[in-house]
Every structure is written in structure tokens, then in C-alpha cells.
Design a binder for these strands. Sequence first.
DNA 1: GATGAATGAGACTTCATTCAT
DNA 2: GATGAATGAAGTCTCATTCAT
Lengths: 191, 191, 191, 191
Amino acid sequence: MTAASTPKGERRRAALVEAAAELLVEGGFDAIRHRAVAERAGLPLASTTYYFDTLEDLVTAAVDHSGRYELARGREQLAKISTEPRAMDTVIELALDQLLGEDSTFDAVLARYERLVTTGRRPYLRPVVRALQDEFHVLLKEIFARSGKPIDDERVHQLVALVDGAVVNALIEADPDPRAAAHAMLRDALT
Amino acid sequence: MTAASTPKGERRRAALVEAAAELLVEGGFDAIRHRAVAERAGLPLASTTYYFDTLEDLVTAAVDHSGRYELARGREQLAKISTEPRAMDTVIELALDQLLGEDSTFDAVLARYERLVTTGRRPYLRPVVRALQDEFHVLLKEIFARSGKPIDDERVHQLVALVDGAVVNALIEADPDPRAAAHAMLRDALT
Amino acid sequence: MTAASTPKGERRRAALVEAAAELLVEGGFDAIRHRAVAERAGLPLASTTYYFDTLEDLVTAAVDHSGRYELARGREQLAKISTEPRAMDTVIELALDQLLGEDSTFDAVLARYERLVTTGRRPYLRPVVRALQDEFHVLLKEIFARSGKPIDDERVHQLVALVDGAVVNALIEADPDPRAAAHAMLRDALT
Amino acid sequence: MTAASTPKGERRRAALVEAAAELLVEGGFDAIRHRAVAERAGLPLASTTYYFDTLEDLVTAAVDHSGRYELARGREQLAKISTEPRAMDTVIELALDQLLGEDSTFDAVLARYERLVTTGRRPYLRPVVRALQDEFHVLLKEIFARSGKPIDDERVHQLVALVDGAVVNALIEADPDPRAAAHAMLRDALT
DNA sequence: GATGAATGAGACTTCATTCAT
DNA sequence: GATGAATGAAGTCTCATTCAT
């Protein structure tokens, strides 16, 4: 039984991951440092290397954790809505809840796209991020299906691309509002 | 008279910027370090802070430089083509030459999108990146105009979003081919 | 005719000294740096080493300049007062105007004592600081003489020591008021 | 458990403080540099920041350490002397042993006064230096009491001021002998 | 199992001074 | 005479990782 498989070990490991995930959103990938994570988690510095062999392992866990958390929130939201025809603007909002998060904080949205782009430099993240992305697509498809506007996989990819493209371009605006940009883009495409 | 106003000073300054720009493409923003830039440029370490007050200044110059270089290459390419109707696949290739670069190396494409996303954490890059982005849009519009398929600004934004979205999603694939993904996405949208 | 002996040279040299003297009061000896002096004087960096071979030369000039300036102000004040018997408290105030400056800003007072103490580590300042100190003693003696309370050289030394001792001990208080401390000390000794 | 709570940690921490204190006496506050302290202590450079978060912390510890050491030596000396009437010159020597140190090396005396004056620019030293100063005053009072010449607190302050004033003025002499100057000053005041 | 202690490598930046023009 | 250009040396501090206990 390794450290991380004891109840206490699991708990501490989770605390570290959660701390790292918070730092990820707040400060980007560079903000995940051993010291910072340990302090945020209220655990000894050495526990970070004890539970995660390298910083990359910790980063990976943090990415996975935030993604899973976002997905869980997305599923909760999905569970709350009925199956019925909806006005397009409503569907779009539901879709963006899935793709950008219900609150769509700037930092949170940014973190989602940093996740994608940084994977280009950190191949070790690929499996995790790919898996997450697939699940988001499933959820998005489901939103449209439940709203009386079923779409096929190809269309899913297209709409995701539109949202992602709109968002990354919005990131550089003086007063960035990625969600609004994505909304406008989707409306144009869907009406 | 600033440090770089003499011919020699200009040359050294340019060498540093070029070195930084290379590192940017090869290793991302984190690769721009005083030491690394100086070594690559074959100049003393202190020259980096002599020509650029802070590392941010150097990063900004590097981003601007790579962007301007890409734009220049885009304009060259544009200058070489005639105005005549073209098949859609050809237009798409020309468009991607503009948006991703003629060669579309993985690193080079990646760097273009890191540029966008990192601006979310580095507001000081905003003015530079925004200006670049605007010019790319102009070039893209021109490509379509010269190919007998004129498009309005709204459509430009939409096509750019599609490309950008396709690319950032392609970045996480096992064997990433962002250009191919973008091509497919554009073809779907344009035919 | 050297640079510093031309009218323009004299002017620039003086500007540098004045700038250095200001920095001395504001930030102590460590604040006298080539860059800082040049910027404050609005002159090119290299002018600092052009007019002063080493930083020590510039520091010496700055110390001399501030001291001379303080003496000049002391003499002005002396010139304004009549010769007549005065109440002890009044005499003390006049004496402190001489020894600490009429305004007795904390920084200004501090600088006077940094000047003394730092000379222990910077022998090159000795001649300048000694000369200044002698003149202050003369002025102090004069104050007493003109107030109907003549004192001999030994007494001058004693009173100066009392003031200096009171001041350096006041420097470490939570809310330092060196002048008040010196006043109290002198009153005790003189009544 | 802080870095220095183990016996070995304590020892290394102490070695650094001692090294810093030595440098302080030899070269003044500017001589306390990470590199210099580490080398003198025979420890790696990074140990300085491991045991002391900032250089200010190390400086503070060095000041406290030298002061405490001086006090301890003063108390030792005090413990060695009997309670009996003494000639004034003897009392003065004992007093100066307390205020300037038994050996009264120029550097050591200088360091005591740099400590006072530099506190004006380094408020973070205030608590430490004030506490030290208070204890020196207590010791001084005790010396006089044990020599059959008891003095009150006010007189303590006055005598301290006289000594301090005499010393800082002696610091600028060509061939400085602060202790002799202080002795003369005290004798004048006490006889 | 868990962690305090430790450190080599390297980060950004400052600065006094030199020198060619 | 005057100064822009340049740089070696050094400064403070951070960090991922290792290891003995």
C-alpha cells in the first residue's frame, strides 16, 4: 500500500492537486511551483515531491482535476435542464456554460485555453487534455439534442472551433469579454 | 539618442531581438531568458539589459518582430499572386499561408497561438498583439478579394475564428497537423 | 583650461554636486550612484565620470557642498540676530539651528550624523568633514557670545557632544525627534 | 519547526550570524552580502537564504548578535568587580568598558555607532537596537552604583550622550582615539 | 511513511568604470 | 571636450530536486 493509497495519503494528495489547480487558474502554468502548492495546501514542502515524483506529474494531475471538475459542473447543469425546444440564444448560453463554465470568469476561461495551447509544449499533457476535450464535445452535442436542435459530430467540431477561435481572439482585447464574443460568433453561425 | 540609435547599436539591438524571436518559436515565452538571448546573439549578458530595460521589453520586441516578419512574408506572397478567380482549395491554402505561415512548422504555428493566449496573462503585450492581429485580418480579406471570392469583415472574423479554433484543438492531437485541421474546417465552411 | 574650469564646465560640475548632495540627504551615502546623480542633474551618465574621476570624488564634493551650504545658512541666521542677552531656551534654539539646521528635517539631521560616522569607514572624507565640524563649533561659540552667555572652547566641545549624543540616541526611537531630545539635553546642562 | 530548530541547524544558523557580525565590524553594514557571509562561514551561498528569508533578516540577526555579545562581555566584567568606592578615573574606565567594549578597537567602536545611525535609514533595526541600548544604560548605572557614585536615570542619559557625542566627533580625527576622547569628556563632567 | 534540511543552478537586475569616437 | 556604448563583476533571491533521518 503506497502512501497515496492510504486514506490520509489520498486526502493529502487531493489537497495538493486542488491547491495546484487553484494556482493554475489564478496564475497560469508558471504559478504551479512546489513551494506555492505546499503553502496553499498547508502541507510540508517535501510532501509535493513525495506524492508526485516530478512537477510535471503534479501539473498533469492539476490539469486533470480542473478539467474533471468543470465537466462535473457541466453534467450537473445538464441534469437540471429538461428536454424541450429552446430559443437559439438560450441554447447558445447553455452551450457556453459547457464550454466556458457557468460563471466564465476571465481567469477560468483563460486557463481553459492555456491548457490547450500549452499542451503543444508539454506533450505529457496530451492524453489528459484530449480525453477532457472529447467529453466536452459530448456534452455540447447533448445540449443541442435536448434543445430540439440535434447536430452531428462534424457540426460539433465546427461550433467548438468557432467558440475557441472567438475566445482566443477576444483574449487580446482591451476589455476582454470572451464569452460575449463567443456568443455573437455562435449566433451568426446558427441563425 | 537612445542606446540603439547608431547603426552599430541598431544592429546589436536587432541581433538580440532576433535571437529572442528564435527562442520564442523554439521554446515558447519561458525560453526568453537574458542568458539564452545573449548567448544566441553572441553578445555579452549585460547587453540584454543595456538595450532593453526589462525582460518584458525584450519579450515585447520579440513578439513584435516575429509578427512583423510573418506579416512581411505574407505580403510578399500576396504580391506574387495575380488577381483571378481560384478554386476554393487554392484559396484556402493561400489563406492559411497568411494565417499560419507558408511553411507552417508546428513550432511556428504554436508560437502564433501562444502569442494570443499568453497575452491574457501579459497585458503589456496587448497593444502589439492586437495591432498584428488586425493586419493579418486585412491580408486575409485581400486574399479572398483577389481570388474572386470577396468577403466582408464579419466573414473574416468568422473564418479566422474557425481557423484559430481548429488549430488550438489540433494542438492536442497525438500527431498534430494544425494546418490540415484548419484546411478541413475552412473547406466545410466555404463549400 | 580643464573642462571644469570653463563656465559651462563649472555649471555642470555644480549641477552634479548639487544632485549628489540631494541624494545624500534623501537616501544616505548609498544613494549616490552615477546613474542617479546624472539623472537628477539632467546630464549624461558619462558626465559624472568626466567631471569626477571616481565616485569617491563625487561623494566628497557632495559632502563638502552640503556642509558648506549648511554653514552658509547658519551664518545668515547669525547675521540676522542682534547681540543681546537672551533667555536660555532661546539660546538653545539658536544653537540647534546651527548644529541641526533651522528646519531640522529628520533626513537632514540624519545626514549630518551619517557624515560623521561614515567618515570612520571613508578616511578620504576626513579632511572635509573635520574642516566643516570646526566651523560649526565656531558658529556655536558665537551664538553663545552674542547672547550674553560666552563659553570657552572646552565648553563648546562639551555642548556639541551633548547634542550629538542626544541626537544619535534619538535616532533609534519609535517616533524620533532628535531636535527635541537635544534641546532637553542642553537645557539640563545649561541650567 | 523552523529551519534552525535542530541542533545542526542551530549551529549553521549561528555560524552565519557570527560571520555576518564579523563582517559588520570589519566593513560596516555594506559588507554584509550573501556571498561574503557564506564564504566566511564556510557554507554554501544558498544557505544564507535558507536560514534567513531576506538579507535584512540576516543583518538584524547580526546586529542583535553583536550587541548581545557585547552585553554579555559587559556583564562578565561587571561580575568580576567588587562593590567598593573607586577613584573617578577608574569608574570612567569601567564605564567605557561597558559603552565601548573592553578592548575598544577602532572598528568595534565604530560599529557600535554605525548601528545607531544606520537605524535611521533602516527602521527594521529599531526594536533590536533600542532593546540593546536600554540594557547598556542599565549596566552603566550599575557600574556607578557599585563604585560608590550612584546616579539617576537622567544622569545616565547625560553621560551616555557625552560619551556618544565625544566618540562620533572623535571618529573624524586624523588619528582617532574615541575612547580617549570619551574619557576626557567624562572626566570633565564628573569632577 | 514523511519531512526538514540542504544546495547547485540559474533567474533578473544594477553598477562603476572604460573607451572609442 | 564630451558622451554614447559597452561590459565584467556582483548583487539578491527562487526553485526543483535530493537525501538523511
